[in-house]
Amino acid sequence: MHRAVVHACFPCLAALAVAFLVAVLVVRLSGARFNLPRLRSLHSCQDGGVQSLAFVLALPLFLMIVMFIVQVSQLMVGIMVVNYAAYASARAASVWIPALVDDRDFMILDVDGDGDAEDDSQNKLPIGFEPGVATTLDLQNVSSSGSGKLEKIFSAAVLACAPIAPSRALASVDRSVLDSIGADEVMREVYTRLAPSSTSNSRIGQRIDNKLAYSLQNTRVTLLFEDKNSSTGPTYNPQGHDWGWQPQFAYYPNEVGWEDPVTITVTHDFALLPGAGGFLAARLLNRADGREDRVSPRIATRDGFYSTRLQASATMTIEGIQSVKPYIHEDW
């Protein structure tokens, strides 16, 4: 073990040796001489004391301002990324909801047996979804649902938020969840194609895995869709009409009809810098107007790091497949 410690400290010792040689070379080139009495009296010398005191007092404040500038810039980037994640997830919803996905919800209703579907099975979400009712998706309920559509919608937001996730390993992040989407190998391949020189760094793959694992466990997607009934326009999912002898025209609450709007809200727990996050969460500042602090309650502390929630929404309509259901009026 002692040998391992020595090997681990060898780069630092080599750097110190090089620095010492450089210092000796500078002293010789400058013509300076070693003066032991002057070194002994150095502690009582007051020359430059005012400048040193000003530097010591100003340096912490300067560093704090620089850290806040960096943190605000990262927050701005995070807000833009979460807005893009909402767009990407809404786009995935508009594409994959009307798609016929081979999962446990796969079903085609062929009434006449001619091989053509008479219903809109490809437009259905898993049972339990209803129009006007928001449903939040996270890693656990998406994995347990077995729905390929929900997986695509959720994965689009996760992959979009991965760039702003921390690359360091965190105790609360379980890397075994990467098997749930299988995107880590794809991301590694894409990164090596874009930056071939990164293949020499063995930590790149670990950092990508850390980002994806954090994004998987700290990103949530809320899905809300509206069923356009015939009181406001044409409907392709007729509610309130009895078509008992034609089950392909029956009403299904979990069916998202053609041109129905779907709103996706993405919430991501954005990791803050240790210094700035700790200062903002400490509740040390009081507002000048006497009102309560609204910043620190929004910052959560977990496993030694600080995070705040960023949220964005996007709405798109389902345009993939037009329903086979007929045009129906309310007064029928």
Rank of each mutant, 00 (worst) to 15 (best):
E185D: 14
V26D: 11
D47W: 06
A86S: 15
A19S: 12
L39D: 00
D242Q: 09
L42N: 04
N254V: 00
V186F: 09
A8K: 14
T135Y: 08
K152C: 00
P37W: 13
A250K: 05
A23H: 01
A312F: 01
G48L: 06
D112A: 04
A8C: 11
D260V: 00
I65K: 00
N35E: 11
S215T: 06
S176V: 11
S313I: 03
F249C: 10
T219C: 10
A282H: 08
T135C: 08
P238L: 02
P60V: 12
A86F: 13
L75K: 00
V256K: 01
K211P: 01
L150H: 05
L216P: 11
D269A: 10
L272K: 03
L53V: 13
Q248M: 04
R40G: 06
I208L: 12
R220S: 14
G49H: 15
L16T: 00
P166A: 00
A213I: 07
K149P: 03
F154R: 08
D138I: 06
T308F: 03
V101Q: 04
N123W: 04
Q74W: 01
A134M: 02
C12S: 14
S172F: 10
I204S: 09
G320L: 06
Q51C: 12
V56C: 09
F68P: 03
D242C: 04
I65W: 00
A17Q: 10
L53C: 12
V56L: 14
R168P: 00
R33C: 00
S180C: 01
L29R: 14
Y214H: 07
G31R: 09
V186K: 04
